[in-house]
Simulated assay, not measured.
Amino acid sequence: MSNLIQPVKVSILLAARNEEANIERCLKSLDALQFPKENLEICIGDDDSSDKTAEIIQAYIKEKPQFKYYKISQQTDGLKGKANVLAQLAHVTTGDFLFFCDADIAVPTGWITNMLPFFMENTGIVVGLTRMKKSRFFADFLSLEWLFTLTVMRFFSLFNIGITGLGNNMAVSRKAYDSVGGYEGIGFSIVEDYALFMAIVKNKFDFVQTYIPEIIAISEPVKTFKELTIQRKRWMHGIMQSPLVLRICLIISALLIPVIAVIAIWDPERSLRMLIQNYMLITAIVLVPVILLKQKDLWKAVFLFWFYLIGISVLMLIIHMLPGKTTWKERTY
């Protein structure tokens, strides 16, 4: 870890569009951050919301000078959606480090103080961890899916193989952000976190995939199957642009059962061994974050996670193959 001499100036960038159900929870978590307020600015970009998002934000941040509200109605050339909001916010920030989270996220109180030490001299980007808020049983599977994926990302990062960023829990140095020309230099992507991560890594900056419980952010889980399919169609844009290893993992998970069923016609014993071995491998991987990151409440879903992973992988592949554009935050891409 670095020997950064605090205090440094930190800017948090938060894009919000029609988040009246979630935004106050996020703001409360940002207000509770254990970091000197005189060295912190929280810049909120209201992406032309049509609900009560702006009203809730303005009421909450009143007499809180570290919070700054910006109504984003103009579009930067070549950008739209969240990337457009973040690009405009970056221009008004003054921090040495830019922290990113989403409006449906609650960050831990030590988020900044535990992320900053990972910045070494040439570190451009630090990726955090995310899980779902404790609620119904399905949310446990979503949490395990996030932690499973982040564990795989952590493994490859040890070999300096970058997979993606995490727009709801990520920090970049101002030097790295400016070196790629910001979001204007990168251009529009519906998966703006992946685009920024890859641009910074390709520009010869180091990255860190963190793996400590103190920086786990808590997200609101999707509430309906429709929301899930919309979310996964957007994610598939990022996955299909990601390194080959991630695409192969998804395709293998989606096609595992059909392939084993075909093998079973000629060799039932081998097909059964393959199923058992795959189940044990996936379960072992998902046990790692539950144990190392101390997420004890997820134990009850661990041994059923394999079935969920197979199902969600098939669903995502089908969603990607179906024709149609992606709708996100009431906008079509």
Rank of each mutant, 00 (worst) to 15 (best):
N39Q: 10
L33I: 13
D178Q: 15
V201T: 14
D104W: 02
T93D: 03
K62I: 04
K82S: 01
L196A: 02
Q295R: 12
S179K: 10
A176K: 09
K202V: 00
K233Y: 01
P117A: 03
Q66S: 13
R174M: 08
I56W: 03
V191T: 14
W299R: 13
F159Q: 14
I257S: 08
P117L: 02
Y70F: 15
I319N: 02
R25V: 06
S157Y: 03
Y333T: 14
S2C: 06
I215G: 07
I61G: 10
F305I: 11
V245L: 14
M236G: 10
V180L: 06
L13T: 10
R234K: 15
V127Y: 02
K226G: 01
M198L: 08
L150A: 09
M115Q: 11
I161W: 01
A284K: 08
N3H: 10
K68Q: 12
S11P: 13
K175S: 11
N278E: 06
C43N: 15
F188A: 05
K52P: 04
I42L: 09
I216C: 11
N114P: 12
A217Q: 04
V314R: 15
S179H: 11
M120E: 14
K175Q: 12
F67H: 09
F137L: 12
Q231D: 05
N169S: 15
L14H: 05
F225G: 02
Q209D: 06
T130L: 08
K223N: 12
K233W: 00
M240C: 10
W111H: 13
F225Q: 13
D104Y: 07
S157A: 13
V92M: 05
S253M: 11
G324W: 00
S11F: 03
E19A: 11
E121A: 15
Q295K: 11
K9V: 10
L33E: 00
V85G: 10
S219Y: 00
A103E: 03
D104I: 07
D31K: 07
L281C: 06
L322Y: 02
E227R: 08
L250C: 04
V107E: 01
G311E: 00
D178I: 08
E24Y: 04
I190C: 04
Q58D: 09
L272Y: 02
F188I: 12
S219N: 13
F100S: 06
I218F: 00
E38C: 06
K64Y: 07
L196W: 03
Q75E: 12
I239F: 03
G128E: 06
Y279C: 08
P323S: 03
T224K: 07
G324E: 05
P36H: 02
D48V: 05
V107L: 05
G181W: 01
V107R: 01
N169E: 02
L33F: 01
N18D: 15
F159E: 09
R25S: 10
A176T: 12
P289R: 05
K64C: 11
S73W: 00
N278S: 14
E41D: 14
V201S: 09
K62F: 01
K300R: 15
F99H: 06
P323Q: 00
K62P: 06
G238Q: 02
F97C: 08
L33D: 04
L86E: 06
L40T: 10
